[in-house]
Simulated scan of single mutants.
Amino acid sequence: MKGAIVFCLLAVATIAVARPEDKYTDRYDNTNVQEIIDNDKLFEAYVKCVLEKGKCTADGKELKSHITDALENDCSKCTDPQKDGVRLVIKHLVNKEPAIWEELCAKYDPKKVYASKYEKELKEVTA
Rank of each mutant, 00 (worst) to 15 (best):
I100V: 13
E72A: 12
D38E: 13
E52C: 09
E35I: 09
G60Y: 00
V94G: 00
S65C: 12
T79M: 07
K61R: 13
G60D: 01
E62Q: 13
C56A: 02
Y28T: 08
P98T: 10
Y24H: 06
D26M: 05
T14M: 09
C8L: 14
P110G: 03
I37Y: 00
G3N: 08
T68H: 06
E121L: 09
R87Y: 08
A18T: 11
R87I: 06
D26K: 02
K2R: 15
E62W: 08
L42W: 12
G54C: 05
F7K: 05
L51N: 02
E52H: 10
G54N: 04
L122V: 03
L122M: 06
V125T: 11
T57Q: 08
I5D: 00
D38Q: 11
L10I: 10
D74H: 11
K111S: 07
V113S: 12
Y118G: 01
L63K: 01
D40G: 09
L93E: 05
K77L: 06
E97L: 05
A4T: 05
E97T: 04
K53I: 14
L122N: 00
N95C: 08
A4V: 06
P81S: 02
K2F: 11
C49M: 08
L104T: 01
T57W: 07
C56R: 00
K23S: 07
F43D: 01
K96G: 13
